[in-house]
Amino acid sequence: MTEFLQQLLNGLSLGAIYALIALGYTMVYGVLRFINFAHSDVFMVGAFIGYYLGHHVPESTVWGGLLVLTAAMIGCALLGMLIERLVYRPLRSAPTLNVLITAIGVSLLLEYTGQLVFGAAPRTFPPIFPSANFHLGPLTISSNQLLVISVTLILLFALRFIVMRTKIGTAMRAVSLNPRAASLVGINNDFVISFTFALGSAMAAAGGILYALNYPSIDPLMGVMPGLKAFVAAILGGIGNIPGAALGGLLLGTVETFVGGSEWSTYKDAIAFAILIVILLFRPAGLLGKFTVEKV
């Protein structure tokens, strides 16, 4: 039982990071109907912004950590908007396949520019937040796990508030439902799309910092695996569905951790993905996704 709870805790904190990344995939899909493969590399850039800034603030302080986190989120929000403006906007009326291939191109560009600029060798992420272990009965909770879970919860609620309660959030949903109708009520679709990229990229940056705190070795290709898993999490939850992405991320992280802690740990990715395939066989639109007929 203790082991179960401990693993559940570990799984949820890993899943929370997947959830943060998955949000960006699902939000961009919601407004543009394509998978932004460069998203996992924005996650990586977020970690690197944290790495460089982390050496300029006092180590292991809450305010220093939050400062780095905020700066990385802002930096990646700008990067996301820049990528959208320079690369995806000119392709707005192009076929989806062209955009997808371009997204893979942007992903490779960021990864290998990263190797050029940051170097290919892994680096150790500085401990920007204070770190301690708490004991709750037989359970051990690290402050990093608490941080991951609380930051994720705060960001999820903030995102939910923006999407459901603010004017720009309602406009995001309107653009997602019907971009043409959205432009007919006066919404500047380009602005809304740009805002969506900013939000998604900021979430990815937060994910990058939190991931780097827990697995403190970072390199320019670090986004590949978490990015792939977050992408799967977004599909699992129902692509385009924001609560679905969060749920999918948590589920995937938990399953992965449980399998990783069992005797089949070598096969943890295989088993985690096999479970996903089975779920998708029964719910092809994802856990919270709805099958919608695309209207012309």
């Binding site: 309602t170 949903r173 309107a174 439902l177 019907n178 043409r180 109708a181 959205a182 432009s183 007919l184 009520v185 006066g186 919404i187 500047n188 679709n189």
Partner: peptide, 23 residues
């Protein structure tokens, strides 16, 4: 572009209504 035309005071009720169905 459409949003600037709306700003000038032309509102278009499109064919097929195009309401935001989930809103």
């Amino acid at each position: 572009p459409p949003h600037q035309i709306v700003a000038r005071g032309i509102c278009h009720v499109p064919e097929g209504r195009m309401i935001f169905s989930n809103l």
